[in-house]
Structure formats: structure tokens, C-alpha cells
Amino acid sequence: MTLNKEGMTPLPIEQSSTRERLIKKSPSVKGFFKRESELRGKWLIYCGALIIIIATVSLTLFLVWQGLRVFLFDGVNPIHFLFRSDWNPGDAKHPTYGAFPIIFGSFAVTALAAIVATPISIGTALFMTEIAKKWGDKALRPVIEILVGIPSVVYGLIGLTLIVPFIANHSDSIGYGLLPGMIVVGMMILPTITSIAADALHSIPNELKNASYALGATRWQTIAKVILPAALPSLLTAVVLGMARAFGEALAVQMVIGNVTTIPHSLLEPASTLTTIITLHMGNTTTGSPFNHALWALGLVLLTMSYIFILIIRYLSRRRTLS
């Protein structure tokens, strides 16, 4: 028999343990190592949150510092690095660090992929939400999920064994270049854009559509004049997210783009992107050499662009909530 808190009436053992189990004392340091301590739970949760902050901040700081080394210690001019086209950091006597063709390649692949993927994605999203309202979503969600799940190296392998030989056979180029890069990355960002666009179109209130139909508008008029303008900020978010994915894509592009550091003059010419040059050379340059530092600087450009994409998405979602 134990006494309850007030010490007045004795309670049966079972009842008191129920009471102890249910009524928690306020968190105290003493109870930290007890199994059901509220405080210990809180600590565990706060540690999880803290590690997210530490990972993000240290990742950013480490990469920024490492990326700046080539400018701070190796005397490379940042303006030269960003805007000149003489990338030859491996040269023993006169290494040059003009990375413009590489940066241009990244932007070119991203823009081309977005141009290819956006109409197909938004068309599919419209099909899911406006044309086949009953079964479109059910039928196409699994398609999107399968496309999302396929690893990027598999996309690269398809590009390498199917698309590159096809282009080589039907033109007088070697097959590697911007065109296969655009197709491979375009396929990869299709599911990203489609799923977000479909969510955006779903969230358009039905009253808007009904009002348009009630005025005698056709389905296309309703889509073009009511639905698309209403969903525009969300659709832009979808496209920017797709572009962010395209910009950071590494191995699939590396397998098909040809990795030549000159500016391509047509879609059939080989090119290179930030990610492909990093993957090609990072493993076989000496740590601490200027060439190695130049690669980290390319990584810094990639990181900066990722942050810019995040800022654009934030700006778009703020606009969305305001309207």
C-alpha cells in the first residue's frame, strides 16, 4: 500500500501506478534518465532539429570557403573566371581559368530541358485535372511515380545507348552534345513539373470554372482564360523546381553531353556543364592544387545558383499567398 500525494487516503497499488503513468511531473533534470521522462523526449526532438540546422549551415560555409580559395590564394580573377572562355587549368606552364563555357552549358541544358518539358508536363497536368477528371489522376499518378523513381544513372544509360546512337545515325555529328543532354534532362524533370502543376490545378476553386462554363465558354477558353492565369504562380514554381533539378543533375548529363569546354554553336555540338566537369576531374586532381581549387569554385557557382532557385521559389510562393 502506498500513500497518495496528499498523504490522506491509501490507494491500491494498481491505481497509484496508473496515476503515476498518466499524470506527468513537470520536466526536471532529475528525471532525465527515466524511461518516460518528458525532458528527455524534448531533448531528443531538439537534437534532431539542431542537426538539421548544423548540416545546412556547415554545408554552406564549408563549400563557400573552399570555393573561394582559387580567388584568394591562387590569384585567379573572379571576373576572368566567370566571363572568359579559356578553361585550361591542367596546363603545366600557363593554366587558364575562364569557366564561361561551362557555366553557359549548365544554363543552356537547364533552359532547353525546361522548354521541352514544360508544355508536356502542363498538358498532362491539365489532362489529369480538366479532361479526364474521373480517372486521369488515378491513371497518371503511378506513371509519374515510376518516372520519379528511376535513378538518374539509368536515364543517363538510356541516353548513352539509345539517344546518342540515334542522333549519330541521323545527323553528321558524333551524337554527344546539347541535344541528348536536353532530352535526357527534359525526361527527368517531367514528373517534377507535372506533379506540382497537377496539385496547383487541383487547388483552383470549382466556382471559378463553373462560372466560366456558365457563361458559355468552351473548355479551352476556360483553361486558357481562367484556369491557367489563376494557377500561374504555382505553375511557375513547378517549372522553377524542375529547372533547379535540371541545373544540379550530374551523372546523366555527363554520360551524354560530350564534356568539351568550348561554347557550342548548335544543339548537335558537344558541351559541358558545371556538374559534368566536377564529376570528371574532382577525383583525379591533387587536393590543394589550383586546378582542384578551380573545381571547388565551379561547385560554389552551382551552390549559389541552387540558392538563387530557392529564393525565386520563395518569392513565387509569397506572391501566391498574397493573391
Binding site: I52, A55, T56, S58, L59, T60, F62, L63, L241, A244, R245, F247, G248, E249, A250, T275, I278, T279, M282, W296, G299, L302, L303, S306, Y307, F309, I310, I313
Partner: peptide
């Protein structure tokens, strides 16, 4: 930010 960083950036880190 972590969700939208390219995986190669995480690899570099």
C-alpha cells in the same frame, strides 16, 4: 534548402 540542393553538392560537402 537541403531538399533542393543538388545531390552532387551534398557529395562535395
Amino acid at each position: 534548402i537541403l531538399a533542393s540542393l543538388p545531390s552532387i553538392v551534398v557529395g562535395l560537402f
